[in-house]
Nucleic acid binder design. Structure first.
Lengths: 223, 223, 223, 223
DNA sequence: GATGAATGAGGTTTCATTCAT
DNA sequence: TATGAATGAAACCTCATTCAT
C-alpha cells in the first residue's frame, strides 16, 4: 500500500499540474489536459469568456465533461492556467522592449519599436488579454494579479528610464517617474487593445504607430 | 453619431419609452419602469454585469419578474437605457472639458482641469462605465456605439485642437491629429478607469493628475 | 408599487406556507403544494427516504421539477412538513392514551388499550414514522426534535403516573419516574415499529398486545 | 440462523474472502482488503451510511477507487462484511448475558448485569449497529437477517427463561414466552440505542440501568 | 495487484419566459 | 398594470464503474 498521507509524488515538483483529486497525471493525462487547455484557448477567440461552458470545451475537445473536471475545477481555472502562461511569457517579452534599449542613442526608433512590439503582442494574444482585462476589471483578484505581473516588468523599466531622464535633466525635476510610467503603460495597453477601433475610425496603423511612439518618447525621455 | 433609439423624453412622442407589447405606459407604468432602471443601476454597483438576473432586479425592486418583461426584453436592454442616458450626459460634459477652453492662454491649467474632469466623471459613474467598457470589449456593437458616442465629442475637439497646433506650427507637421487625439482619449479613459490601481501601486492622485496633465498638454499643444 | 421590504401579507399568519421566494401562495399554489406533499407521502410508503428524488416527486405529481422548487428547498423540507404535521396530530393522540385514563380503576384494560393504540398509530403512519426514526438516528436535529415532540406528551403523562404510583406506595420508593416512563416509551415505540417482525417470528398480534400491556401495566402501576 | 456467506477464516477454504473476479487474494491483497474494511468502519463513525461513497473509502484508504472494486462490489458489500463480523461476535456476547446466569439465585443482580452488558455492547459498536438498524428498518433483508442473528441468541435464552418461570409458577400461566422475550429484546436494544437521549432528557445512566434492570427482572422472572 | 484515465448516467438547480387572471 | 404560477431548457457536477496498462 502507498502511504495515505500527502499523495505527492516525490519526483514531481510542487508546481506540476495536478488532477483535481490531487494525483499527478501521467503522460496520457497530461496530453488530455493540454488538449483541454488548447481547446479553451481556441474557444476564447470565438466566444465571450462568460459564455464558455464546460460542456463546450469538452465537446470541442472530444472528451466527456466529466473528464474536464478531472483536470480543472471549472472554466475559470483552465483560463487562469492559460493566463498565467501568457503572463509569464509576456512579462519578459514586454520588459525587453524597454530594458536594455538604446534610449539615449535613438529614442525615436526605440519608442517606435516599442509601440510596434506592444501592438504586436496584443494582436497575437488578443483573446486571452481581453479575458484578463475583463476579469480584472470585474474585480477578480487572481486575474488582476496576473495583469499586474504581465505589465509590471515593462512599467518598472520605464520608471527607471524616467528616473534617469530626471536625473540627467532631460525631464522636469518635478516629474514623478512611477506616475509617468504608469500612464504610459495605460496608454500602450489601451491603444493596443483598441488598435482595430482606431483603424475603423480612420487612423491607419502606421500613423497610430508614429503618434504612439512620439508620445511615448516624449513622455519617457523628452527633449 | 446618431443617438440610440431610446432617449428619454417627457412627452409620449415616437421616441417615448414603450412597453414591450408596444403600448405607451401611463404614469404608473413609467414609475415602475423608472424603479426598475434605478434598481438595475444599484445592482450594477454591487454585482458584475453578467451576474445580474432578471429575478434579482425584480426582487430588489419589489415587483414580479413578469413585470420586468413589461418594460424590457432582458437585462441588457435595461442596461442599454442606462448607458444611453450616461452617454448623452457624458458626451457633452467631456467635450466641454476640451472645447472652448483657453488652451492657448494656459494649456497647463486647462490640461490639468481636463484630467481632473475625466477622473471625476469616471469616478462618479464607474459602475456603468465599467459595464460599457466590458460589453464593448466583448464585442457588443450597441455598447461599442455608446462608448464611441460618449468619447467622440471630446476626441473630435482634441482633433481640432491638434490640427490647430499643427497649423500654428506648435506641433510637428507630420502629426496626425486624429491619431494623437485618439491616443489621448485612450490614455485618459484607461487611466481614469484604473485610478485606484495607480494609488494602490504607490502613485498619489495629485501626482497622477499632474503627470497626466503634462502628457496631455504636451501631446495636444506642445511647445 | 408594493412596498419592497418585508413582503409578508398582513392577513397571512407567520406560520402560513411560503413559497421559496418568500411569497404567500394563492389558492392554486396551495393546491399544488398540497399535491406535492401528498405525493411525497405516497412515495415514502414505497421507497426508502434517501432514494426519493425531487424528480420522482415532480414526475409522480405531474409537475415540473422546477415547480417543486417553488415550494420546497429540497426533499427533506417537504418531508419535514409532513413529519411536523404528524407530530402535531400524534402527540395529542398518544398522550390521550395515557392521560385521563382510569389507571387506578382498571390498569389492565387501560394498558391494553394503550398498547393497542400505540400499535395502531404506528401501523397507520408507519412510513412517516420510519423516516422520522431514521433521520433522528442519523443525527438530524430537526427530526430528532419532531420525534421528541411526538413522544413527549405521552412520556410525561407516564412520568406523572409513575410518580403517583410511587407516592401511593404502589411502586418501590426508589423508582425513578422519568427513567421508567422513558423505558416504556422506548418499549412501546420499538415494539410498535417491529410488530410485523414479531408476527413473522411467531408471536400473534393478540399475544403481543397482551404481553406488552402486562409489562406496561406492571411498570407504570405495579401491584 | 445460518451465518452469512462471508465469514472470515484464516485458510483459503471455500468461504475465504474472494476478489470480485473470483480469485483468492494473496497476502498483499488481503491486507488491502482489510485496510478497506477498517477505513469503511472509520467512516461509518463519522458519516451517515448512505453518504459514504466508494470514492471516500478509497481516498481515505489511500488507494484508487478501482482497487476497491477488486474486493467489494459496492459499499454495501463492505458494510455487510463488517456487520456480519459484528453479528458473529455480538450474538455470543449477548446470549452469554442471559444464558447460564444465576437467575434463580439473584435475578436482580443478573438483570442489572444484563442491562449493563447490553448498554456497553451498544456503546462500543454504536456506529455499526446504527447502520444495521437503519438498513433493516429500510427493509434490507440481508441486514434484517444480521440483526436477527445478533439478537436471536439472547432472545431465545430469554424465551427459555420465561418458559421456566411459567412452568415454575413464578409467572402467570397465560404468559407467552416468545412475546415477552421479544418485547424485552426490543426494550433493551432500543434503550441501548438511545441511552444518550435518556441522559439528555435528564435520566442519569445509573437510574437508567436500575429502571431497565427492574423491568427486565420483573418481566422475565417476576415475583 | 493496483491504478490512471475516461465516461455514461442522472439528479440538482437555476433562470428566462410565458400566460391566464 | 401587475403578477402568481408553471415550466422548458441547460449547465453543473458527482459517482459508480470499467478497462487497458
Amino acid at each position: 500500500m502507498t502511504p495515505p498521507s500527502e499523495p505527492i509524488e516525490p519526483d514531481a515538483g510542487p508546481g506540476a499540474p495536478r488532477a483535481v483529486d490531487g494525483r499527478v497525471p501521467g503522460r496520457r493525462g497530461l496530453a488530455t489536459r493540454q488538449t483541454l487547455l488548447e481547446t479553451t484557448a481556441e474557444l476564447l477567440t470565438s466566444s465571450s469568456y462568460r459564455d464558455i461552458r464546460v460542456v463546450d470545451i469538452a465537446r470541442q475537445a472530444g472528451v466527456s465533461p466529466a473528464t474536464f473536471y478531472q483536470y480543472f475545477a471549472d472554466v475559470e481555472s483552465a483560463v487562469l492556467v492559460l493566463a498565467a502562461e501568457l503572463a509569464e511569457r509576456g512579462a519578459d517579452e514586454l520588459r525587453a522592449l524597454v530594458e536594455g534599449q538604446p534610449w539615449s542613442t535613438d529614442p525615436g526608433a526605440v519608442a517606435e519599436a516599442m509601440a510596434a512590439g506592444y501592438l504586436a503582442f496584443w494582436e497575437e494574444n488578443s483573446s486571452l488579454i481581453r479575458v484578463i482585462d475583463l476579469a480584472a476589471l470585474e474585480g477578480d483578484l487572481r486575474f488582476r494579479d496576473l495583469r499586474t505581473w504581465l505589465l509590471q516588468g515593462a512599467t518598472e523599466a520605464m520608471t527607471d528610464l524616467v528616473a534617469d531622464g530626471v536625473a540627467a535633466g532631460a525631464l522636469r525635476p518635478d516629474t514623478h517617474p512611477k506616475a509617468v510610467a504608469g500612464v504610459m503603460t495605460s496608454t500602450l495597453s489601451h491603444v493596443a487593445a483598441h488598435a482595430q477601433g482606431f483603424e475603423a475610425w480612420g487612423v491607419p496603423p502606421a500613423e497610430l504607430h508614429r503618434a504612439l511612439a512620439a508620445i511615448v518618447a516624449s513622455a519617457l525621455t523628452a527633449r
